[in-house]
Amino acid sequence: MNDNIIPTLNPVFAKRKAYREGSEHKPIWDLLDSVFDPELPGLTIWDLGILQDVRLIDGEWQIDVTPTYSGCPAVETINADVKAALKAAGYDKVKVNLVLSPAWSTEMMSPVGKAHLKSINIAPPHEEDRVQCPVCDSSNTKVVSQFGSTACKALYQCNDCFENFDYFKHF
């Protein structure tokens, strides 16, 4: 192990993580780890950073979710999936709130989420939009189109291995 490397979490995600760990509703947060973004296979809504809060108000579970992009069509599916996951575990009274504030950003994504994106050949978001090819790790890449298969992605090509890939936009 290299002692010179100080492991860091970005502050936005660290705050989210601390909040979750301090929550009294741990089983619900854990249950929601079975809900995935329908357009990003294997990426949970927690890892994506859109799951914001779990609260119990007057016997009803209130789940706060913030949309990635305002027109993202996956929102409705995610709502239904959240309800289904909790219902399967015996929680019937569930309300999913779409919250706009704080606005979602890629800083809210977990390191696990970013690693997962790379594993399915999607370049994870980078602060200065320095895009690395998910296949050969080259940084010699070019943008093909600022929009890809979904609103959250752009199309890139690697100049070294010529792979075409999606880049999850830094937002």
Binding site: Y69, S70, G71, C72, P73, F147, A151
Partner: peptide
Amino acid sequence: NVALDYIGR
């Protein structure tokens, strides 16, 4: 995709 952002707005 730009259209989608505007419809969300």
